[in-house]
Write a protein that binds this DNA or RNA. Structure first.
Lengths: 210, 210, 210, 210
DNA sequence: CCGTAACCGAGACGGTACGTCACGTCTTGAG
DNA sequence: CTCAAGACGTGACGTACCGTCTCGGTTACGG
C-alpha cells in the first residue's frame, strides 16, 4: 500500500532549487529595476538559470511576478494583542510594511492592471495573494466574537460584511501607500482603525435596530 | 497688457485637432487591447498621425495614458442631493462608473504601478487625476458644513482628515472594482457610505470628548 | 573461435535494430523536411529512440546524414552491357536516379558544404560516399581494358586520369541535377557519355603521339 | 517631361551604404566562421547595422549569402587569349580561383543544398549566379565561331549543347574543388579543357556525319 | 508675397527584449 | 552499461516596439 501514489514521471525531475532561486532573483530585480524594466532574461541570469527553464515553469512576466510577490505575504500573521482594535492595527501595520517594500510596490499594481484583461491571471492573484489576506479578516472576526467584542453574525450577512471590510482595509492602505504616496504609519493606522471600527459598530447597531 | 503672454513661436503651430484625436485613439486602443498590448505606433495610426507628432507632445506611453485617462475623470461632479450621505453616494457611484470602464481599468493601475519608480509621473498623476478627485472631498465637506451637517473643522486636523477620507473612499472603490472584481453597485455604495459616515461621526465625537 | 575479438564490454549491449531505425528515420525526415529543417529530436522520435541513444552513436547531424545518405549509394553497380559506352551510360543513369531522390538531394550538398570546414567530415564523406563511387571508374576501366577497348595504362598517368574522369562524371551529373535543375535523363546521359569518351580517346591519342 | 519617373517614395530612404557593408560583412563572416556558424546577428554587428535593418532587406540567411557570394562572380571575364582552348582555360581558371576562396566554398554549396527545397531560392541563385556564368559559355562560342574555330550551330541544337558544356565545366570544377578537395590548377585545367574540346569536336563531327 | 522656421506624413534606423527552437549534455529510474 | 524520458544551459532565431532620425512637403507668421 502506498499512501502517496507518487506519479513518478519518467525523465529528469525539475530542479526544486531553481524555483526558489528564480523567485528570489525576481524580487531582487524588482527592487533594482522595477516592473517595467524587469526582463526575464535578466532574472534568469541572476538566478543562474537558463531562460528556457524559466519559461518551462511560468507563462510570462505577470505570472512569475505574482508568485514572487505572493511569497512576501506569507509573513502576514494575525497578532493577538488583546483587543480587536489592537489586533487590526497590528495586521494593518504588517500589511503596510509589506506594501512599503519596493518589490511589492513595483510588481503588485502592475499585475493587478494586467489582470483586468486576463481572467487566468486574476484567478492566480486571487488564489495566491488576495485570499491569503482575506482569511485574516475572517480569523480576526472569529477571535473578536470569541472574546465577546462582536456579536455572532448572521451567516448571510457575514460574507458581505467581510468583503466590505477587506476592501476598505486593503484599499485604504494600498491607496495611501501607492497613490497618495504617504506612509501608512502607526498614527495613520490608528486613525483609520478607529473610523473603521466605529463605523462598523454603528452600522451593526443600525441594522439591529431595523 | 497681455494676460496670456503667448510666446508666439515662429513656424507652423501644432495642430490642435491632433491632440484630441490622439487621446481618443489612446482610449480606443486601451479598450481594445489593454495597457500592455497598446503601442504608440498603433495609437498614431488610429489617430491618423505620424509617430513623430506623438513624441513631440508626450514623452512616452505612460504620460500619454495619464492624459487620456484623466479626461475620463473630468465628468466627475459633486451632485446636490440634499444630504451629505446622498451626496457622497452620488459621487462614489460616478467614480465607480468611470472605474468600471475598460479604458480606465486598464490604464490607471498601470500608470500607478509605474509611478512607484518615476517621480515625474507621480506628479503628473497627482495633478491630472488625483487632485481633481480630492477636490470633491473638500467641496462635499464645505457644503455639509454649510448645511450644518458637520461642525466647522480645526484647520490643522482638516487636512489630515480629508486625506484619510479620500484614501478610504478611492481605495475601497478601486479595490473592490479591480482587485476583488465585483461591481461597486448602489447597494455596496450605500453600505460603504454608512460605515464611513458613522465612523467619521464617531471619531469626531471621540476627538471632541478628549 | 571468434574472428572478431569483441571487447565484450560489460553492461547492456547496444541495440542493433536501433541503428537501422535511426538511419531510416533520418532519410524519411530528409524527404519530408529537408536538411535545414531536420532535427535530431525529430529523428529520434521517428525512430522510437531516445535522443541520448542517437548521440551515443553519432557526433551530430552531419555525421548522421552522411551515413544515412551513404546507404543510398550501396545500390550502385557497374552493369555489364557489352561496351564501355553502354556500361558508363548505365552507371551514370543509376547515379542520376539516386541523386534525383529528395533524401539525397537535400542531404548531400549540405554535408559537402559543411565539409569545406571540417576535415573529419570530409574524410567520412570520402570514405563512405565518394570512394565507393570512384571504385566504379576503376572497375569500368579495367573491364574495358580486358575487352581491348582501352590500352593498358601507364600507372603514373592512370591515377590522374581516373580522378579527372570521376570529377567530370560526378560533377556534370550533380551540377545538372542540383544546380541547373534538369533531370539527367537517358538522352542527356548519352550525349554526355559521347563527349566524354571521344574526348578521352582523343586525349589518349594525343598523349601517345607526344 | 521627366525621363525617370522616380517613384519618390515617402519616408526616409534606405541607406545604400548599409547594403554594401552588410554584404562585405557577410563574406568576412563566411571566411572566418563558415556557413553553419554564421549568424545574422554577428553579420549585423560586423556591418555596424541593426539586425532589423538586415531583415528588412533579406528574407534570411540563404538569400543574404546568395547575394554576398554572387558579387564574387562579378569579376568573371572571358579573356581573349587568341584561341578557343586558351580562352576556356582562362575562364575556367578564374572560376576555379573564385571557388577556391573560402567565402565561396562555404556558402555556395549550402545555398544550393537549400535550393533543392525552395523554389524562390533556386530562382535567385539562377538569376544572380548561374546565368551570369552561363553567359560566358555563349560568348565564348560566339567568339570562336567568329574566328572560324567552330561552325555556325543549328539553333535548335545550340541551346542543348550550351547547357551540356556549362554543366560539364562548372560541375567538374566544383566537384574537384569541393568534393575531391584538390585544387583546379593550371595543369588540371589544361587536361580537362583538352578532353572537353576534343570530345565536343568529335561529337560535332559524328553529328555532322549522321 | 516671400522667406523662414516649425510643423507634418512616412518610414528607415540602432537598439532591446521577446518567446521559441534546437542543440548537445545531464540526471532520473528501469532493465 | 544501455535505454526512454525529459529537464537543463546555451545560443540563435525572427519579430515587435521603442524612441530617434531623415526625408519631402506643408502651413503660418513676420519682414
Amino acid at each position: 500500500m502506498q499512501s502517496h501514489p507518487v506519479p513518478a514521471r519518467p525523465g529528469r525531475p525539475r530542479s526544486a532549487a531553481a524555483d526558489a532561486a528564480i523567485l528570489a532573483a525576481t524580487r531582487e530585480a524588482l527592487v533594482e529595476l522595477g516592473w517595467s524594466k524587469l526582463t526575464l532574461g535578466d532574472v534568469a541570469t541572476r538566478a543562474g538559470v537558463a531562460k528556457t527553464t524559466l519559461y518551462r515553469r511560468w507563462a510570462g512576466k505577470h505570472e512569475l511576478v505574482v508568485d514572487a510577490v505572493a511569497e512576501l505575504f506569507d509573513a502576514l500573521r494575525l497578532p493577538d494583542r488583546g483587543s480587536l482594535a489592537a489586533d487590526i492595527e497590528g495586521v494593518v501595520l504588517q500589511f503596510a510594511a509589506i506594501l512599503a517594500r519596493p518589490e511589492a510596490k513595483s510588481g503588485l499594481m502592475a499585475v493587478v492592471a494586467e489582470s483586468t484583461r486576463d481572467e487566468a491571471l486574476r484567478d492566480r492573484i486571487r488564489t495566491s495573494i488576495v485570499d491569503r489576506q482575506k482569511r485574516l479578516v475572517l480569523e480576526g472576526r472569529a477571535r473578536a466574537q470569541g472574546r465577546g467584542e462582536l456579536p455572532q453574525s448572521d451567516p448571510a450577512e457575514s460574507e458581505r460584511t467581510a468583503d466590505l471590510i477587506f476592501d476598505m482595509v486593503a484599499g485604504a492602505v494600498v491607496h495611501r501607500t501607492l497613490v497618495s504616496g504617504h506612509p501608512a504609519d502607526e498614527e495613520w493606522v490608528r486613525g483609520f482603525t478607529q473610523v473603521l471600527l466605529l463605523g462598523l459598530a454603528g452600522a451593526g447597531a443600525a441594522a439591529a435596530g431595523d
